[in-house]
Design a protein around this nucleic acid. Sequence first.
DNA 1: GTCCATGCAAACCTTTTGCACTATA
DNA 2: TATAGTGCAAAAGGTTTGCATGGAC
Lengths: 166, 166
Amino acid sequence: MSLVSTRQPFVRLFGRYLRDEGLPVTQQREAIAKIVFESDEHLSVHDIEQALRDRAGRVGKATIYRTLDLLVRSRLVEEHDFGEGFKRYEHRLSEHPIHEHLICLECGTVLEFESNEVYGVENRVRREHGFVPVRHRLEIYGLCRDCDEGGAELPVGGLTCPIETA
Amino acid sequence: MSLVSTRQPFVRLFGRYLRDEGLPVTQQREAIAKIVFESDEHLSVHDIEQALRDRAGRVGKATIYRTLDLLVRSRLVEEHDFGEGFKRYEHRLSEHPIHEHLICLECGTVLEFESNEVYGVENRVRREHGFVPVRHRLEIYGLCRDCDEGGAELPVGGLTCPIETA
DNA sequence: GTCCATGCAAACCTTTTGCACTATA
DNA sequence: TATAGTGCAAAAGGTTTGCATGGAC
């Protein structure tokens, strides 16, 4: 069974959301939803534009942004900002809907992992600070196994020991 | 003792960094460093520009960006992106140099807290994924105590239960 | 037929860059 | 005096918006 048919129900789910909101289900919206749901990557708008050019006809950037906004509102897709200067999008329909990210500073690869520890932190800040957690983001930046074993080194720079020399 | 004199050594620290790098210590660079070190907020470039207008003469935006770049390189200042569409800057000379952020979705306030739990997570990903952590970012979004007690509600929206209805 | 979406281009916002002029060391 | 910084304005890059046209229901 191909990924395409496997993910078909998710595209229909987006259609249901649109109908519930009284919004038209257009070819472009379905095409964009397909791209996002059939990928397990963290897609940039540029990635999506590229994929659309290959499969569906040319779709305007404005439409991509507007549709991504709807996908995020529907809660089927999550928006990420890894500090690259643009956003990335990822559907939330995988087997691990809540996960954190490991970002390699050398090659840019994004790995996913789960962390139950964060729930403990959320409970603690609720108790200690009266803060009611809704969602969180944990990103660890460093070197992925391949880059580390490949001997990659990160430039250090800066003052060696700022506090002590104050 | 005023905050100004208390933080003076930090400005000198930046001067030392500049000299070490063979770069001139200019009035503008000192003025910008002062603003950042004397504040305990998470400042935007706009905030800094505003503060400069009040205290020092007018300083060009380009100079602010270029100086912030130096401050970040010196490791005396940290760059943050809370997904607002622009960056914020915070000095790293407080008593809690490594901390995480609680961001209120209602009023935008940013609170700081410490989490030792994250070090456990870092050790785990090193063991389990061979990923070498360098730095991390943990942000919890939700309602601060004031907004929660003030009866703030966050709009839910979206499909209620996407997975199950697939 | 009524809305709303689309596509294009222009606008917007933050950040970066080029260049003539000025200040540091 | 040599070198690098500053300020201005223009450019760049991602994202948003206005508006005439076209598609969904």
